[in-house]
Design a protein around this nucleic acid. Structure first.
Lengths: 348, 348
DNA sequence: GTGAAAGCGCTAACAC
DNA sequence: GTGTTAGCGCTTTCAC
């Protein structure tokens, strides 16, 4: 650990003023060849690197952007970070990252600290709107991710309603009649997912059963499995809050001797990479996490640049990913198709 | 985005000096109740938050620590980050994070930028030792993760040799005779894994076949699969560089009509959470990624605090995780046990 | 083209 | 207990 040199050391060694060195570093001006060479030599000799903190204090720019997410272990968020990181690097920015799950009590403090060190942030959070307002007022551009922002603030997310709706349509078309949703109420997208699914089923005259998991995790999918499978009224399809819950559910179901999709169909949401390798491969809806991160970051840079842009909620389109955890229910398939016109008039 | 207030605004509003406000904020002194109340009121009214950059410039402390990893999408690194984050938060520090995969050309620059904004870092990297020396000399405490550091610098990692060696012992004990390793040479732990495996097999008079993947990823595991399975000399076990490669390999094998573990056993390394849910469940070695992150961060804080500590490489013990992707080869099992004493003397 | 000087917002002596 | 002052390392007018 050697002593750090300052701009003054460089100036002294090159025999110029610190102002000259500063301008040289930031290439804000041209110099005589002689000066240029001497300054460059001094910088090289001293292995001088400018102190970004000092620069930030004056310019007000940090050269960093922040991303706050709920749980880095959830591949959905991991991919958001990946996408966001790529765009940040392309713009010559660093990405600073905070995982808020470990300390929800200190979320405010964490976000505040982060906001002070960056030029803008993308935030995923479950905190209530009023608390969120404080965050949006930190004085830095903020993009809210995964839920619509209050008022005229920008946000980004997938169309959760559409995602759930297309799952509903798929299941009904395949002849499923008794469908359950394993929801996670504290998560913001839960409401829209529930609503999309309900509306789809309702249009076909079907009802949705809801179960609750304690978190968007594999472990919770495993935990809830037996109570879902062992209830009286038999289900023929389960839609999970996300792929992690679905993976846990399928694992536990197998342990219970239940076959998927023969005995019951399972659908996830997110399309995490591992969904291809479960047994059976998981049918899901792609929420395009990485693209979400990329788009969020692009939007953020537009905000930072002060470019005019549409505020409000930017939606990314979900895509159905058919794999092997759902199957056509032959007995009911024909009836389901028949019932559609009838169901439509019956709805509401 | 409202205008930021400074310590001067607070001082003026409270009718005290800025020094008083500063001391109040940092609670470095006691005050009369009256002053205390007025200052607090001013802070609340103005919604004043101190500027950490300005503070850092003077104190030389940033209140942040950094973690640089190769690919956040690899659950191994994700878990390191998770563990590191937890310990950082416990110490009241923020975690800043850099994913270097996206821009290896700029890795130097990235690490330098990061090092300037934190009080210390944990680094995973594939860069050569000489380049690494520059990083270690940035002037900040650095813990190297995943490989032994040069000279007297601290580092942390699992005992890769032991991990591979225990896999070798397991496979031999189970009666496997034709074992291959799917290695990834650019990764630092690859050499030790290869060596541990080789030594184990050698001690039993067996030879190791090596294949090369183009990256520690699912996709590469899938890609290499057919050339491994379709070679003339049949294999009965494959040890993969990590779980991701193993998952890809198993997926592709299934597509080719190969049964695991009936036709061939597969072993991974890392014990990522999804290994439990592949089909068959993946036998692997737990590299305790999260603990690695935690321990690395604890070590880093000891360094930052200037506490004396053992430099050199701290090793975390690996643990074998038996699941269903390996099986006993009945025909050869007895012979394998018999051969051990013989093999031992034959070795080297 | 180059340099002198005035701060960015804050902390840390040191007076009072 | 409280205030004054001198910077931290740098950028940015504005003279020369």
């Amino acid at each position: 650990m050697k002593k750090k040199h300052t701009i003054r050391d460089v100036a002294a060694r090159a025999g110029v003023s610190i102002a000259t060195v500063s301008k040289f570093i930031n290439s804000t001006q041209r110099f005589t060849a002689a000066v240029e060479k001497r300054v460059q030599a001094a910088i090289d000799d001293l292995e001088y690197h400018s102190n970004p903190l000092a620069r930030s204090m004056i310019t007000g720019k940090t050269g960093s952007v922040g991303v706050a997410i709920l749980d880095i272990c959830n591949p959905h968020f991991t991919n958001i970070v990946k996408g966001a990181n790529r765009i940040a690097l392309e713009h010559g920015y660093n990405l600073l990252f905070v995982d808020t799950e470990e300390s929800q009590a200190r979320e405010d403090e964490l976000l505040d600290a982060l906001s002070r060190r960056v030029d803008g942030l993308i935030i995923s959070t479950r905190m209530p709107d009023e608390q969120l307002h404080r965050v949006m007022d930190y004085g830095k551009p903020v993009i809210l991710s995964g839920r619509p922002a209050p008022e005229g603030f920008p946000s980004i997310g997938i169309d959760a309603h559409a995602a759930a709706y297309m799952i509903g349509e798929l299941l009904v078309k395949q002849g499923h009649r008794n469908i359950a949703y394993l929801g996670f109420a504290p998560a913001r997208p839960d409401t829209e997912r529930m609503r999309g699914l309900s509306e789809s089923l309702e249009a076909h005259g079907l009802e949705l059963t809801r179960f609750e998991v304690g978190g968007p995790t594999i472990v919770e999918g495993e935990r809830v499995c037996s109570s879902v499978l062992l209830r009286k009224a038999k289900l023929d399809a389960v839609v999970c809050y996300n792929d992690l819950v679905a993976i846990g559910f399928m694992g536990a179901a197998r342990a219970l001797g239940i076959s998927i999709p023969e005995d019951i169909s399972v659908v996830g949401i997110d399309n995490i990479p591992f969904g291809r390798f479960t047994s059976p491969a998981l049918t899901t809806v792609d929420t395009q996490s990485e693209k979400l991160g990329e788009e969020g970051m692009r939007q953020l840079f537009r905000l930072i640049a002060g470019e005019p842009q549409q505020l409000g909620h930017v939606m990314v389109e979900p895509r159905l990913v058919m794999r092997d955890s759902t199957r056509i229910r032959p007995a009911a398939a024909a009836a389901a198709v028949e019932s559609r016109p009838r169901a439509k008039s019956r709805a509401r």
